[in-house]
């Protein structure tokens, strides 16, 4: 990429809290800090991977971006064709139009399509909304979309139950593509699929990106998948980004102890790499009451005094010409 990187989306201090209510009067008794201060730049035309374990806030961040859940604080500046705007300050109407450029593909291909609608019915909704008035036009566009995701034109008259999981996921992708978006959030888009089908969908996503010049935010817990598809990877832990760098660098020289442990924990289908495990102890703490200081310190093998009291900042350094951001006190 080099110098001509254009920032498409600039997130600063994004926080999404879910209030907890308890007691008879439904009084607020704390917050689930799902996303707790995320700074992230997304460049045009890249695939950025967002990885972490369940409960680390990766899906919430994706949904916050599309304003499907309202973030509590922070800014999200998106560079539209007409100029830069903060997604969080858009009115309802503006937001509707913004969704023409921002789309999402959900994890579960079974629950994200309405079973009572034909594929045409599901796919024509966004087109109707964005001003394709003639039915013949919609049919042509949807037919082309289905072909581009390796399905057949005739499939549009069928119902979701007639399709397999992999096919449904491709329909979900076609739906996201129908309004010609620029940025697609893929939230665990291949996780529910069988391995032989996973590869088909991954290759389809890469093909579409090349053809339509898309930008992906690829949310997953599967590091092998994210290594294959992403240009850069952000590792999240309890609502914060702990490490962010280019893919090759992350796998060759991860700096954060959590990333290292995560990489070591993944089973690899390669006998020459069968290794002695030293798994992380304990569980991910509750995001309602996260540990003070560095969130990772209770599980960290290299924990020191300062980690218990001070929150480490995400500091970007340039190491061997590669930008490498990590939030750890122990990284010099």
């Amino acid at each position: 990429m080099g110098a001509e990187k254009e920032v498409l989306l600039r997130m600063r201090g994004v926080k999404t809290y879910f209030p907890l209510r308890s007691g008879v009067f439904n009084r607020s008794s704390g917050n689930v800090k799902a996303v707790d201060g995320v700074d992230l730049d997304v460049y045009r035309g890249e695939i950025i991977g967002l990885v972490g374990e369940s409960g680390c806030g990766k899906t919430t961040l994706g949904k916050s971006l599309l304003q499907l859940v309202k973030p509590t604080a922070g800014t999200m500046e998106y560079t539209f064709k007409e100029g830069t705007q903060d997604l969080m300050k858009l009115s309802r109407k503006e937001l509707d139009l913004a969704r023409k450029t921002l789309q999402i593909v959900f994890q579960d291909p079974y629950s994200s399509l309405n079973p009572a609608f034909t594929i045409f019915g599901s796919l024509e909704e966004p087109l109707k909304r964005f001003g394709v008035r003639k039915r013949a036009d919609r049919e042509r566009i949807i037919g082309d979309l289905l072909v581009s995701v390796n399905l057949q034109r005739e499939h549009m008259t069928r119902y979701p139950n007639e399709f397999s999981g992999g096919q449904r996921q491709r329909i979900g992708i076609a739906r996201a593509l129908s309004v010609n978006p620029e940025l697609i959030v893929c939230d665990e888009a291949v996780s529910a699929l069988d391995v032989s089908i996973q590869a088909q969908v991954l290759q389809l996503l890469l093909k579409l990106k090349r053809e339509m010049n898309l930008t992906y935010i690829f949310i997953t817990h599967n590091l092998s998948v994210v290594e294959y598809i992403s240009d850069r990877i952000a590792v999240m832990y309890l609502g914060r980004i702990v490490e962010l760098t280019e893919t090759d660098r992350l796998f060759a020289g991860a700096l954060h102890p959590y990333t290292k442990a995560l990489l070591a924990a993944i089973p690899v289908a390669d006998l020459s790499r069968r290794k002695k495990r030293s798994p992380l102890q304990g569980d991910v703490p509750s995001p309602v009451n996260p540990p003070g200081g560095c969130h990772f310190h209770p599980r960290c093998p290299e924990c020191q005094g300062v980690c218990r009291t001070e929150v480490p900042k995400l500091i970007t350094r340039t190491i061997d010409g590669v930008e490498h951001a990590v939030s750890c006190h122990l990284v010099e």
């Binding site: 397999s164 391995v195 032989s196 590869a199 290594e227 294959y228 796998f251 690899v268 289908a269 390669d270």
Partner: peptide, 23 residues
């Protein structure tokens, strides 16, 4: 099956060959 799964540590250069069709 072995060729259709991305293997950790082999980066973006690895060639994935999906199994065509479905079960």
């Amino acid at each position: 099956l072995l060729k259709s799964i991305p293997i950790l540590g082999r980066g973006k250069k690895q060639q994935l060959d999906p199994i065509r069709g479905s079960t």
